[in-house]
Design a protein around this nucleic acid. Sequence first.
DNA 1: ACTATATATCGCTTTATTTCAATATTCAAT
DNA 2: ATTGAATATTGAAATAAAGCGATATATAGT
Lengths: 105, 105
Amino acid sequence: MNYKMSSAELDEMIKALSHPVRRDILNWLKQPEVYFADQEHPLSLGVCAGKIDQKTGLSQSTVSAHLATLQRAGFISSKKVGQWHFFSRNEEVIQHFLTRLNDQL
Amino acid sequence: MNYKMSSAELDEMIKALSHPVRRDILNWLKQPEVYFADQEHPLSLGVCAGKIDQKTGLSQSTVSAHLATLQRAGFISSKKVGQWHFFSRNEEVIQHFLTRLNDQL
DNA sequence: ACTATATATCGCTTTATTTCAATATTCAAT
DNA sequence: ATTGAATATTGAAATAAAGCGATATATAGT
């Protein structure tokens, strides 16, 4: 895990962060037990998409697109269990991104 | 200098970074002696807008807008000397931003 | 005063992003 | 097989951002 992210990847990551709702989502996923205490499934799986929809107040399709953007950027990943998709943060990627930004900026 | 930047300010800053040309500019300004060795005025004043125009290859008006965006976000500031506007980085602001991003992300 | 240079601003067009409703897909339960 | 629930994808409309040329403003030199 000592790979230098490309400039294109960095670009995608920064763009992914440039929408406040996407930053909110990342933040909520940092403390699922605080923000998604009502989830029926164990939070260890991640947070399921529907819960995130609710919290944003945006339409299901819009939030799905935001989640896809975050995932393409590498900030989150999802595991599918049954009909649910559980999302969680990729802490290493986030850390790596911050380090990179410290250098590059 | 112990002030917590607002969420709106953070938003403006991240948006300012979300364009590759603006990140390039910030980067060039980090080492003016490398990227603007040909400037006639002393680099200690900052880098003058025209030089930046040249380097980007974009039109004068477009670059002027990019510089304004970076300045509104607080990343750079300018001093006017005669007919020239010299731009330079606000290192403290940049550092503050990075710290804030580390927390918030 | 006039001309030239540097930069900003305006008006406009093009491109990208966000959003939603509607539809499609996938899996579970009957 | 059908139905229902969760999520993704598609198509279209609205909004925002980027770009340019032309014009405005400010300063310098003649």
